[in-house]
Design a binder for these strands. Structure first.
Length: 152
DNA sequence: GCCAACGTTGGC
DNA sequence: GCCAACGTTGGC
């Protein structure tokens, strides 16, 4: 079992939206970055743990825990010309972009803010706190996972 | 293959 | 709203 961190903008889709979904699952569409795609497509397995992260908001940080509910399959939003994430280069017979489904596990008792995660030597290797990082999906080691959750 | 221009991400 | 960092695009 592996661990991940996935970013989302709460104004678009946040932890409370996931908790309110039927079955408390949702497909993670719209990833249009090759590194993130490769991790989703090739490495994420059902049952993997996910730190649910809110970005582009008042207090960016980890707000909850989710798990991978379905392994990668083609991101159908790429096929829809009316969709914001439409990509004509991705065809149903040869999809370029993939998504996974995630399932709500729980909300944290409080937001573990990015500002708290910075400058922690335990997290020096975490992509999230490295300068200029823009990955929306990234791996988290078991030690990093345990450390971050110990801050709750 | 280089690299300038451009678009996006995302913290602040 | 600003802007640094980074990815992508496309001319050459």
């Amino acid at each position: 079992m592996r661990y991940w961190l996935m970013k989302t903008e709460p104004g678009e889709f946040g932890i409370d939206d996931l908790a309110a979904r039927p079955g408390q699952t949702e497909h993670w569409d719209g990833v249009r970055n090759y590194q993130a795609r490769n991790m989703m497509r090739d490495e994420m397995k059902e049952g993997d743990g996910v730190l649910f992260y809110h970005s582009n908001c008042d207090v960016p940080g980890v707000v909850g825990i989710a798990e991978i509910a379905r392994e990668a399959y083609p991101d159908f939003t790429a096929f829809d010309p009316d969709d914001k994430h439409y990509d004509p280069a991705s065809k149903p017979e040869d999809p370029r972009w993939f998504m996974v489904d995630v399932r709500f596990v729980r909300k944290l008792r409080r937001t573990i803010a990015l500002s708290e995660l910075r400058d922690r030597p335990e997290l020096a290797g975490l992509a999230l706190v490295r300068k200029g990082n823009r990955l929306s999906v990234m791996p988290v080691s078991p030690d990093q996972w345990n450390f971050i959750l110990s801050l709750e």
